Simulated scan of single mutants.
Amino acid sequence: MTALPRGGRPAEALAAVEASIEECWRRFLTEYGVAAGTREETELAETVVADTSDFAWRVVDAALGRLRCPECGNELGAGPTDCQKCDQANGFRFAAVEIDRPATPRGTEHGLRVATAVARTRHRYGVRARCGFELGLPVLLDGELPSTAQAQRYRAAIDKLAEDECERVTSFEEVTRRLSSRRGR
């Protein structure tokens, strides 16, 4: 499980998404009659990663987490940004199937998947991208999708924060409060 250095709702949301990833993987193993912790599980994970477009994104993320990169030795897709095998695997992550959850706006699941990938492999993304996607996790997990205008306002506000502030804030409301307090000085 990935622990976010930022706490609050983003960390809770990431823990909830990671639990859903593990639950999907457990069901997937059961469907294929494969026991966890076996060579067959590794082989099944390799099959998933060989063509991610055939599987749900949570299954793909779980499969990546069970494989090691042959170049850098890290979890496949989560190694340093200069690892070509991890870059390739991370890119293939985004070919997986996304099915929006019932009663959520179209595209919510895509947003959740991207935000989860960023939060789980933070070192692969810039500080402001991490901030925006991590703060968006609870909103997306709750089944909401910010409008384009809303997302642009969030980004503009995050762009006004110092990098150390970007790493500490735990909500979009906190970002707004920080910026408002500066204007009040």
Score class of each variant (00 low, 15 high):
residue 115 A to C: 05
residue 79 G to R: 01
residue 121 T to P: 06
residue 66 R to C: 07
residue 27 R to C: 03
residue 136 G to L: 13
residue 120 R to W: 11
residue 86 C to A: 01
residue 36 A to P: 11
residue 71 E to A: 14
residue 133 F to H: 15
residue 48 V to L: 08
residue 161 L to Q: 12
residue 10 P to A: 04
residue 6 R to N: 04
residue 135 L to N: 04
residue 18 E to N: 03
residue 56 A to I: 00
residue 6 R to P: 05
residue 8 G to F: 10
residue 135 L to W: 12
residue 117 A to G: 15
residue 144 E to Q: 07
residue 21 I to Y: 15
residue 114 V to W: 14
residue 103 A to S: 11
residue 24 C to R: 07
residue 152 Q to G: 00
residue 182 R to P: 03
residue 146 P to D: 01
residue 136 G to S: 14
residue 3 A to E: 12
residue 154 Y to V: 00
residue 24 C to D: 13
residue 93 R to W: 14
residue 56 A to R: 08
residue 41 E to N: 03
residue 106 R to E: 09
residue 87 D to Y: 04
residue 166 C to R: 12
residue 65 G to W: 09
residue 97 V to K: 07
residue 101 R to S: 08
residue 15 A to C: 05
residue 26 R to L: 08
residue 114 V to C: 09
residue 4 L to P: 11
residue 23 E to G: 04
residue 57 W to H: 07
residue 163 E to M: 14
residue 134 E to W: 11
residue 71 E to S: 14
residue 84 Q to M: 10
residue 119 A to D: 13
residue 113 R to D: 03
residue 47 T to G: 08
residue 135 L to G: 04
residue 90 N to Y: 14
residue 135 L to V: 06
residue 98 E to P: 00
residue 95 A to H: 15
residue 83 C to N: 07
residue 100 D to I: 00
residue 148 T to I: 05
residue 86 C to H: 05
residue 168 R to F: 13
residue 33 G to V: 04
residue 183 R to L: 15
residue 134 E to Y: 10
